[in-house]
């Protein structure tokens, strides 16, 4: 089949790739761009392990032909921070043991990130709804919910402190948080 030249935008970088139209974003990320943080558990949209953000929304990279996301901003787990510069959400996730085998974790973290970016103060029900498309076999889900909840609470507390000191600082912090994210 004819290969297609695609100009993908992944984690803020231009990534030109030449691929068959039947190649999914999952394959392109893992096999062409070597971004193996995005996992796969079924390749049929039934587990959530391959969740990435497409223009900020969680989507399943196994169900997206790469050609369909040309022009969109694709965000993968690699963009959230490495082991030495983790996102505070990831720190809390690790601290609580919300990752056991860790295989479903990148997908969950991306679903959680999408929620936290759009909903500053999610309720427990909001959190459950946001991760209802991700399966985990290790944890029983509690620590995952707790990690997201703790992060949101801490962020709110931090922001309250910032507000009381200086509204400009809040903005700076938000930008910093975003940059880290």
């Amino acid at each position: 089949m004819k290969q297609m030249a695609l100009a993908l935008r992944v984690n803020g970088e231009e990534k030109p790739v030449l691929v068959s139209p039947s190649r999914t974003l999952l394959e392109v990320l893992r096999e062409d761009l070597n971004l193996t943080g995005t996992k796969h558990g079924c390749e049929l949209g039934e587990c959530g392990a391959c969740t990435v953000l497409v223009d900020g929304k969680p989507m399943l990279s196994c169900l997206l032909p790469a050609a369909q996301v040309e022009g969109a901003e694709i965000t993968t787990i690699e963009a959230l921070g490495g082991p030495s510069t983790p996102h505070p959400l990831q720190l809390e996730w690790a601290r609580l043991g919300a990752a056991q085998c860790g295989y479903c974790t990148p997908g969950f973290v991306m679903s959680a990130k999408a929620l936290l970016d759009s909903n500053p103060e999610p309720t427990r029900e909001d959190i459950k709804a946001a991760i209802a498309g991700n399966l985990c076999r290790c944890t029983g889900y509690h620590k995952i919910v707790e990690a997201i909840e703790n992060f949101a609470r801490q962020r709110k507390a931090d922001q309250a402190i910032d507000r009381s000191i200086d509204t400009t600082a809040t903005a700076v912090r938000a930008v910093a948080l975003e940059a880290r994210g």
């Binding site: 089949m1 004819k2 297609m4 068959s20 139209p21 039947s22 190649r23 999914t24 999952l26 394959e27 796969h40 079924c42 390749e43 049929l44 196994c62 032909p65 050609a67 369909q68």
Partner: peptide
């Protein structure tokens, strides 16, 4: 990994 069969693609 489960993969797609080959096909031609158009995006009108």
């Amino acid at each position: 990994m489960l993969r797609l069969p080959e096909f031609e693609y158009a995006a009108p």
